[in-house]
Amino acid sequence: MSEAAYNFAYLDEATKRMIRRALLKGLAIPGYQVPFASREMPMPYGWGTGGVQVTAACLTPEDCLKVIDQGADDTTNAVSIRKFFERTAGVATSEHTAAASVIQTRHRIPEQALTERQILVYQVPIPEPLRFLEPRESETRKMHALEEYGLMHVKLYEDIARHGAIATSYAYPVRVEGRYVMDPSPIPKFDNPKLGGMAAIQLFGAGREQRIYAVPPYTRVVSLDFEDHPFEASKAAHDCDLCGAAHSYLDEVITDDKGGRMFVCSDTDFCAMRRAEGHVGRLSPKGAAA
């Protein structure tokens, strides 16, 4: 690929204008899915084409981009997307949450609180929160128009009847500003409380499904629940074995074939930062503490 043959941030200007218009309408109608003419990208559908198009439409030459997948900067798809923008937009990149002005993410919200000078771009596989209850787009569109969300409550209630709890642990549906029910992308429900009242702009791109939506800063975002079964942001009941963090989302790592396992922060930058500050965990090497 000869980079010079492609426009700044890959997409042509007409395509960027189209995406930019959709993003503005998305911000004006929080949680509503704006249809957009998603383009075929040089990476497969389902691998972040929506997020990549949103990022491409937002990046300026002055930006610093961070890309994470499962919370980590070094997962293969995150590396691949970061390289794509290094080549096509020539922007600076960083693995540090605080250093980035645009963060593209798949499946996590960083642990460190984001600021007003940041944009968080989510990759979304299935933007329609009602899709698994009603497969037809023509029907779900009507349900949103009529604010008809009974089906969703029935589903959650059936969970409680069968399992004694709401059996959704990621992509947990939320209500935005008391109006649209929205899929927050497959983030663990642990991350849901960070969606509301965030200082940063949150943009969501679903390439294959051709939808863009947004949550402006300081917006009310409520996870669906029932009075007698309130929403609970859960995580593994452990501390990070490397940095000792008690309130970060953890990955479980199998360490041997005898049931040995350890728990480490899924947000690799957060964990590294804490270790650099001298925090230690159960399995930190001896003498690691500064």
Partner: peptide, 16 residues
């Protein structure tokens, strides 16, 4: 694309 994307890491979701 969508079919093959399930090869990508999903360990955060799986953990939840």
């Amino acid at each position: 694309g969508f079919l093959e994307h399930i090869k990508l890491p999903h360990y955060v979701d799986f953990q939840s």
